[in-house]
Computed example of a mutant assay.
Amino acid sequence: MTPVLQTRYVFTITAHIGAVTSAGEIGHGVRRIIPITGGEVRGDDINGKVCAFGADFQIIRPNELIELEAKYAFETDDGAVVYVENKGIRFGPIELLQKLKRGEPVDPKLIYFRTVPKFETGSEKYRWLMENLFVGSAARHADRVVIDVHQVL
């Protein structure tokens, strides 16, 4: 019998983003910085707002594979602050990735965009976020990134 990995959906992070800043070609890809300007967190057990600071630091490889590392925080409706480091990759057909870079709409189902969020908080109520592993299935839109976060059981 093949072992099966199980996950449980816990919440969705919608991170609003600002204009891209590019540091240009750095020798192994193009470095981009995308500010996180706010947003929301919605789920059965956690709801809140994404803080209006932080950024997604990306490297776009020559084959258009995008490595992402976002650092930001959200505040729950009951006042807990949760720091987030979210690493991942985005990849798909080159013409669609170039449309995304230009801010044009692309069907998220056509792009592979997965992340591994890591959480930190001093809140006892949300300590379980630091005691479990999570994976995210994400979609990039012109003005936001939407990440469905799943707990690995």
Rank of each mutant, 00 (worst) to 15 (best):
V82W: 03
R32P: 07
Y72M: 04
G48C: 04
V30H: 07
N86W: 05
K71H: 10
V149R: 04
V50E: 00
F74M: 03
E25Q: 08
E64R: 15
H16W: 02
R102D: 13
F134K: 06
G122T: 14
L5G: 12
E85V: 10
G27N: 05
F57C: 07
F53P: 00
V145M: 12
L65F: 11
E67V: 15
R102N: 12
D78G: 03
V116N: 09
V146P: 00
Y112H: 06
I94W: 05
E85M: 02
R90G: 02
V106N: 08
D107T: 03
E75N: 04
I26Q: 10
G122S: 12
A55L: 02
Q58C: 11
K101M: 12
E25L: 08
A80G: 01
R140S: 04
V20I: 15
P62W: 13
K125V: 10
R42W: 01
S22M: 12
V10D: 07
A80K: 03
E67M: 12
I94H: 10
I89A: 04
V41S: 05
T12G: 01
V116W: 11
D107S: 05
I36S: 02
S22A: 15
R8D: 11
E25I: 11
A52S: 13
P3D: 06
V82I: 15
I33M: 01
L65N: 05
V10K: 08
A15N: 06
Q6T: 14
F74N: 06
V149C: 11
P117M: 07
G54I: 00
C51N: 14
I147S: 06
F57H: 14
P35Q: 10
G24N: 01
T12I: 04
R90N: 03
E67H: 12
P3Y: 02
D107H: 06
G79P: 09
L68P: 04
R31L: 14
V50N: 00
L129P: 09
F91V: 11
I46L: 02
T115Q: 09
R42I: 12
N86R: 03
F119V: 05
Q58P: 10
Y112S: 05
G43V: 11
V81Y: 03
D56V: 08
T115A: 08
I147D: 08
D45N: 04
F91W: 13
P105M: 11
Y112M: 06
I36T: 05
I33R: 02
I111Y: 09
E95L: 06
W128C: 00
R8V: 08
G18E: 00
K118E: 10
